[in-house]
């Protein structure tokens, strides 16, 4: 059977399309999502299909429209909010964190918030300091939220569908630089469980954990390591909160070495949390300190060479893996 290949942006669109067809309460709002078909064309055709009642262009008013969406989720609807990028969601973070995440708890279990906040996160070329930040760790810090950050079209579709069906508020991180990526996505219904990591490549010498577009860096590093007869195991987190640390610990029991690749700033990053969980649950199995490869501890500059120096890349991951193997 030949597999169907589609782009990441179309995987996102299909997930929204199928879930909107399935459930009348699901609707989409955001800047340029309707008439412009999405700033990155991830909602192409949805206005034509579902009309302006369910595919809604907003003014540039992130705090306002995110709050309206949360309010509608408190009262029976299941909104999908697209942020043009997560950088702009900083204006809305009060409604995401103080309202959506805390609603169920504050109301003593009465008022839930089934809502998905989605959009691209992270660097995307030379966009400088205000358009390049990653936010997985920011939202993963918040009890009440779930955080998903898929690395390929299949996962994006299957996890977005799961997120839309989930009864809790979900933060869903995509990437401008992955919207054009193609991957196999079979026709018809696909779902993946939230909170489960994926063993993307089996190996025995060192475990590399990553997520979102940094998975490409992880895979490229594993290929490089293979040339030097180092057999890397690669884990794709898929979900950031809840974090599937048992899968990581199981892998470390086999490889005894761990490298985490994470685009975000190092301080308080997902890599930090994984390092804590692994030392706690796998201390006796570690043969070397956990290594991490993060973005530089500075705002993203504009110049191309400084960005290269800033971002994780396969060479830095190879270096970290070899350091963990004491083979430098």
């Amino acid at each position: 059977m030949s597999e169907r290949v589609i782009a990441y942006r179309d995987a996102i669109k299909e997930a929204m399309d199928e879930e909107m067809a399935r459930d009348e309460r699901v609707y989409l709002m955001g800047e340029e999502v309707a008439e412009y078909n999405g700033a990155y064309k991830a909602s192409k055709g949805l206005l034509d299909k579902y009309g302006p009642k369910r595919v809604i262009d907003t003014p540039i008013a992130e705090l306002g429209f995110a709050g309206v969406a949360v309010g509608s989720a408190m009262n029976g609807l299941r909104p999908i909010v697209e942020f043009m990028t997560w950088n702009f969601a900083l204006l809305a973070i009060d409604q995401v964190v103080n309202a959506a995440a805390k609603m169920l708890s504050m109301s003593g279990g009465q008022v839930g918030c089934p809502i998905v906040f989605r959009g691209p996160s992270g660097s995307a070329g030379q966009l400088a300091a205000q358009h390049s930040q990653t936010f997985e760790n920011w939202y993963a810090n918040v009890p009440g939220l779930k955080v998903i950050s898929p690395s390929n079209p299949y996962d994006a579709k299957a996890l977005l569908k799961a997120a839309i069906r989930d009864d809790d508020p979900v933060v869903f991180m995509e990437s401008e630089q992955m919207y054009g990526d193609k991957g196999e996505v079979p026709e018809g219904e696909i779902l993946l469980p939230i909170g489960k990591a994926h063993m993307a490549r089996q190996g025995k010498d060192v475990t590399i954990v990553s997520f979102n577009k940094m998975m490409k860096v992880a895979h490229a590093a594993a290929d490089e390591l293979a040339k030097e007869h180092i057999d890397a195991e690669v884990i794709d987190l898929r979900t950031i909160r809840p974090l599937d640390y048992p899968t990581i610990v199981e892998s470390v029991k086999k490889t005894n070495r761990l490298v985490v690749v994470d685009e975000s700033w190092p301080y308080g990053s997902i890599a930090s949390e994984i390092a804590f969980q692994v030392q706690k649950h796998g201390f006796d199995y570690l043969d070397a300190p956990v290594k991490r490869v993060n973005g530089a501890d500075v705002p993203m500059p504009y110049a191309a060479n400084l960005i290269e120096a800033y971002l994780p890349n396969p060479a830095r991951v190879v270096q970290a893996a070899k350091a963990a193997l004491y083979r430098l």
């Binding site: 950088n87 702009f88 900083l90 204006l91 966009l127 400088a128 205000q130 358009h131 500059p301 504009y302």
Partner: peptide, 24 residues
């Protein structure tokens, strides 16, 4: 801005131009 800011973040304090801001 020494290649730090790019098109969206032009600045020159001395010339009384305080940027160049990317968040609408």
């Amino acid at each position: 801005t020494k290649g730090k800011g790019g098109s969206m973040h032009l600045f020159d304090k001395e010339k009384r131009f305080l940027g160049g801001h990317g968040i609408v």
